[in-house]
């Protein structure tokens, strides 16, 4: 009961400011009503420590932005808490919980079922399926997905109809209704981001985790994406999203967490965290003293980064060819 009342109340900016005003603006500070708590997560690739987070809490019902320069370990951190990767510190003090339930040993699909749904930096649209089918897959607990029941339509046709209505409503909201019969692979990069977000919402998540939702999206669409994210929060969904350009997120995030070189370096409200010296160092220091001939560039983490960039460029090229 209390959950819904706080959520409703948080549509008001003043209420959110008031809620967060009591929180210390420093890394790992405790929140009044944390939905996600993370302790002691370390992930190493070879000799490189990609993520080393001592403690982090994410407040329920607001938009939290996780920002940091390229290679700060944001995506790896996302992978770790959503079950797509295992921390090196697993079994040695690594502990994280979502909405009261421990997730230390939970598989990615169970994490999603528990109400924490994520999207990906490189969108994972199911290309050779229609937009509508993509959406339908987002719904949870479908009787028709049970092999024993799927051959007998009466078991699932009523539920299917409900799911369909919900999907259509969400597609309408995300301006994808006209595309519902198209293959997801034929959508533009921005539309795919929208589709992925809409698909994630099919499961009515308690918290949605967006990995660079603005990457590769044209500026016109960026505004509407930001609008969607805000309206999600206003409806009571907790939002955690990753972004490397802090200016983009400035006016929509209620709280900002800054990562650099795998560690949390700062936390605070959007307008004040930008002036934090640790943050400025993180952003300027990430690139200004890097020698391109440096061996560290060939580390796994940088390789991954490069791979991702190459893949992103390829995706863009493909898109250009298509249009």
């Amino acid at each position: 009961m209390s959950e819904t009342t706080t959520a409703k109340g948080l549509a008001d900016p003043a209420a959110r400011r008031q809620l967060m005003s009591g929180v210390e603006p420093e890394p790992g500070s405790s929140k009044p009503d944390p939905i996600l708590k993370v302790d002691n997560i370390v992930r190493q690739f070879g000799g490189i420590t990609a993520v080393d987070v001592d403690h982090l809490e994410v407040q329920r019902g607001i938009i939290t932005a996780l920002i940091g320069p390229n290679g700060a370990g944001k995506t790896t951190f996302f992978n770790l808490i959503t079950g797509f990767d295992r921390p090196t510190s697993a079994g040695r003090g690594a502990h994280w919980s979502f909405d009261g339930a421990t997730l230390d040993r939970t598989s990615a699909s169970k994490v999603a079922k528990s109400g924490m749904v994520r999207t990906f930096q490189l969108t994972k649209a199911l290309s050779r399926m229609t937009v509508m089918d993509n959406m339908m897959l987002g719904a949870q607990n479908q009787a028709g997905e049970n092999l024993a029941k799927c051959l007998i339509k009466p078991f699932w046709s009523a539920q299917e109809k409900q799911v369909e209505e919900k999907a259509l409503a969400l597609l309408d909201r995300f301006s994808l209704l006209e595309k519902r019969k198209d293959y997801a692979g034929s959508l533009s990069g921005g539309q795919r981001k929208l589709l992925e977000m809409a698909r994630a919402l099919m499961s009515d998540p308690k918290m949605i985790m967006l990995d660079e939702p603005m990457a590769g999206v044209n500026p016109a669409l960026t505004q509407s994406l930001l609008g969607h994210i805000q309206s999600l929060r206003d409806e009571g969904t907790t939002v955690l999203f990753v972004e490397h350009d802090m200016h983009v997120v400035r006016h929509i995030s209620d709280w900002v967490v800054v990562m650099a070189e795998g560690k949390l370096v700062a936390e605070g409200p959007a307008d004040s965290v930008m002036s934090n010296t640790a943050v400025i160092d993180a952003y300027l220091g990430a690139h200004h003293d890097t020698d391109l001939g440096d061996d560290a560039l060939l580390s796994d983490a940088t390789l991954e980064q490069l791979e991702a960039e190459v893949a992103a460029e390829e995706a863009e090229r493909e898109e250009e060819q298509r249009s």
Binding site: F84, F120, R128, M129, M136, N146, E160, S203
Partner: peptide, 19 residues
């Protein structure tokens, strides 16, 4: 819907896990 899930797995396993 089961058949739909099959195709989803064919397209992207990680996306299916995230759902």
């Amino acid at each position: 819907p089961w058949g739909r899930a099959l195709k989803g797995v064919r397209e992207d396993e990680d996306a299916m896990r995230s759902l």
